[in-house]
Write a protein that binds this DNA or RNA. Sequence first.
DNA 1: CTGAAAGCGCTTACAG
DNA 2: CTGAAAGCGCTTACAG
Lengths: 343, 343
Amino acid sequence: MTMSQSGGRRKPPTIHDVAREAGVSRGTVSRVLNGGHYVSPTAQEAVNAAIRRTGYVVNRHARSLITGRSDSIGFLLTEPQEKFFEDPNFNVLLRGCTQALAAHDIPLLLMLAGTEDERRRITRYITAGHVDGVLLVSSHSGDPVAEQLREAGVPLVMCGKPIGVGSKVSYVAADDRDGARDMVRHLVSLGRRRIGVVTGPLDTPGGVERLAGYREVLAESGIDFDERLVVSGDYSRASGEAGAERLLGQCPDVDAVFVASDLMAQGVLTSLERAGRRVPEDVSVGGFDDSSAALAARPQLTTIRQPYDRISAEMVRVLLAQIGGEDPAAVILPTELVKRQST
Amino acid sequence: MTMSQSGGRRKPPTIHDVAREAGVSRGTVSRVLNGGHYVSPTAQEAVNAAIRRTGYVVNRHARSLITGRSDSIGFLLTEPQEKFFEDPNFNVLLRGCTQALAAHDIPLLLMLAGTEDERRRITRYITAGHVDGVLLVSSHSGDPVAEQLREAGVPLVMCGKPIGVGSKVSYVAADDRDGARDMVRHLVSLGRRRIGVVTGPLDTPGGVERLAGYREVLAESGIDFDERLVVSGDYSRASGEAGAERLLGQCPDVDAVFVASDLMAQGVLTSLERAGRRVPEDVSVGGFDDSSAALAARPQLTTIRQPYDRISAEMVRVLLAQIGGEDPAAVILPTELVKRQST
DNA sequence: CTGAAAGCGCTTACAG
DNA sequence: CTGAAAGCGCTTACAG
């Protein structure tokens, strides 16, 4: 007979009820629950039937108390919430991580901590053991949250190379510098010589490394570096628009722009169009990321593909390994030049 | 002397360590932890000092095991992930709920369950007691998740009126029908007579109610209902664009369009522009939501304001009340016509 | 105001 | 393969 509990908060069945129902000890029920090792087929059968009849579902708090694990992972974003929604990269990353974890039957908890206050609350929540590990996404470096979690001994993998945290924390990143080199070489190969750059925030590795790649190619190509051709943004569309504005003002002869993110590149296109410059005829524009923004842009953006599917898969792999006791690790993944209409 | 534990997973201090350090019993420590009632100032002091010295932080699993609460709330979205990122309403709603809960020092866990598989996993996670209650956002009705959670006795508040679940589940919604009436009356007052409508999905209350409001005003204004003026979308920008396309094909004489969401209205504007119709000179366009999409649109949208800040605040209030033992409740909030350039 | 004790629901050596 | 028992870290009546 089914013990259907139609709504209401009746006391849910425990392992004890199942044991009684199945005519075995609680230890045996627990063994069935945890993989069925050292359990006779008969007992196995009886327990499973009892679980079905009682509608038993394990109390995770009790289990966690003893195992010390919560069997869930946190996806922590220490950015203002607008960023999260505006930037398509986060979307792809989140989806990739969710899927990679799904293969292990582990739920992903998304935690947004854009304010100081929220960061404090979430940090407390995490260090109290509510998740077994954290996938941390934060473009800005020197993020105190990373350091706090590391000190608390919480397994942690960052997306993108952290600045200043040393090699004590795991991270997965695309090869920013190499990607930037590919793009700028491409622009040079097109005959461009007055190549502007809209960088990311210069306190982030993505900002610094992509600019470094730009300078390297200029040097190897015998093109003088002109600092008036360098402006920086914060990865938002608006900052790209403003950056291009400045660029055009400082160097009207600019004939190409390497933009450190596709979203900013969209803004750059807007400014160029307003200024009456044709893309790619007058000015070539190269983006970075190959996010959905690259395809949504008009013209569609030539860009540097970050392998987000692999990045998220690697983040999960490294995190699970670390939870399993392995040491931190850094993973650098190659990028790829994707040619479209903007160059 | 400080027991700083520099990184590593040393066994964290327990309430027992604190008790020893403070020279009191574990019961007293617990009392301090839980509000400090029935504790002498002296003991209070000693315990707090001991907590600081040991770096103690409560083990939530142990606490949850005994209290039966997790002290966290889930924000569950049973929509494809793209929707979540594309639609600015979710952003505002999420932020509002986060803030409302912050006032109670309760962390919000965002759970995305766009696929059948994810829904199953998340439902199990929730019913296992990982959150005390759920704020459920799902535009589609007949969502089996809602029914499952209700049956499992999980406190639940939905955003928007659910179809078919009866009055057993709490919800907070704007007055869709009244909002629609306001908008269509506004269009009629402008002298428009061939008023098209792009509805939301017709298996959702927002879809049905806003259409009903449209029909009511037509009737009261003595305008014949023409079903060729009715097309429906799924709240995405693309569906608005396609809907307007169809509308123009079926009724070239359309002189106004009431669109059931601002995002869809953006798509409608795109189609109208492509067809060479001026807004608002040739065609008036009215949106719904007053989301960021309304301000981003060109021309800026006249729309119906949904009071999202109040909606999220009410959702949290009702949910906390329900967790506290109160019965489910429905809250309907008034909307407001906001006039801008599109009409 | 405070301590000793029971108990939340589970897992895991330990004997058999 | 299986049961009895200890114990995870905490809260909460219950006596005092």
